[in-house]
Amino acid sequence: MAYNKLNNPRAFPGNSSYGMSLRDYFAGQALAGDMVDEALPLDASPALLEERAQFYYRLADAMLKVRAQDEALTNTTAMMGLSI
């Protein structure tokens, strides 16, 4: 999935174009959740860390996809005068 400013906005929008993307924020939240459950050992190998990082970004990609589908549904129903 190719990312651009339309489908991967800033996580904390404001007047600046700098900062964390929503994809980065989602991946970081997935990592934080893993660390709470101690699913990632502190002495993990570099290969395992890279594997987990790829997993967190796949989760973030899935979240962005569902978010875009939900926004499309919301916009469509709003144009039809419906609410969900």
Rank of each mutant, 00 (worst) to 15 (best):
G19K: 00
A60I: 08
A62W: 15
A27L: 06
L59T: 09
F12E: 10
N75P: 01
V36W: 12
Q54T: 10
M35W: 12
L59G: 00
L59H: 04
G19Y: 06
Y18S: 11
L40A: 03
R67I: 00
N8W: 02
L59I: 08
L73E: 11
L22A: 06
A60D: 01
A27W: 00
A30M: 02
Q29V: 10
E51F: 05
Q54S: 15
G28L: 12
Q54M: 11
P46M: 15
S45I: 02
A60P: 04
S83I: 10
D37S: 14
Y25A: 09
M63F: 10
A32H: 08
N8M: 01
K65S: 11
A44C: 09
S83M: 14
L40W: 10
A27Y: 04
Q29R: 12
L6T: 14
Q69M: 13
G14E: 06
T76R: 06
N15L: 13
R58K: 15
S21F: 08
T77I: 07
T74V: 12
M63S: 05
T77G: 06
L48M: 15
F12G: 09
R10W: 03
G81F: 12
G28A: 12
R23K: 15
Y25L: 13
D24Y: 03
D24L: 01
S16Q: 14
L22N: 05
A11F: 07
A78P: 02
D61I: 02
D37V: 03
A60E: 00
L42N: 02
F55C: 02
V66N: 10
K5R: 10
F26E: 04
Y57I: 06
R10Y: 01
E38W: 03
P41I: 03
G28M: 08
D61P: 11
N7Q: 07
F55S: 00
N7W: 03
F55V: 04
A32S: 14
A60T: 04
Y3L: 14
R10L: 15
D24C: 04
Y57E: 07
A78L: 13
L82F: 14
E50P: 00
L82Y: 13
Y56G: 00
E50Y: 03
N7E: 09
Q54I: 13
T74W: 04
F12S: 13
N7M: 06
S21W: 06
A39Y: 13
A11S: 14
F55D: 08
G33C: 08
Y57L: 13
L82C: 09
L42V: 04
A32V: 09
L82D: 01
